[in-house]
């Protein structure tokens, strides 16, 4: 990938991120922040490659920490986002527990 192609990718990805989020309702801000937090967990892939190419003990140690942290970012981000989004339902989607409960 040449530098200029990388620059194009950067530019298009930046616009994509802006567009995707620009019409999001306030109620989804926290889950969406959490979701985007999960997405940058892709750093795991890079951390794995960095550790996979590490030679010295120092590099291996830092690489190990990197993979550990990245896996935490990806897995933790997924778990909390999923837990939050699971709770979103409209009053039509399920029977209201309110009427008839008493």
């Amino acid at each position: 990938m040449t530098g200029i192609v990388a620059l194009y990718i950067f530019m298009l990805a930046a616009f994509t991120g802006y567009e995707v989020i620009s019409r999001v309702p306030v109620i989804l801000h926290t889950p969406l922040m959490s979701g985007s937090n999960f997405v940058h967990g892709i750093v795991l892939v890079g951390a794995m490659v960095a550790l996979g190419n590490a030679d010295t003990p120092l590099e291996k140690t830092i690489g190990f920490i990197g993979v550990l942290l990245a896996a935490g970012n990806a897995v933790g981000g997924y778990v909390v986002t999923e837990r939050m989004l699971e709770m979103f339902k409209s009053s039509n989607a399920k029977a209201k527990p309110g009427p008839g409960a008493h």
Partner: peptide, 21 residues
């Protein structure tokens, strides 16, 4: 740095979306 398109795209998307947020 690692020449990894998935990281570039995902990272940048989050970077710009997060800035907007």
């Amino acid at each position: 740095v690692l020449n990894n398109a998935a990281m570039i795209i995902a990272g940048t998307v989050v970077g710009s979306a997060g800035t907007l947020l």
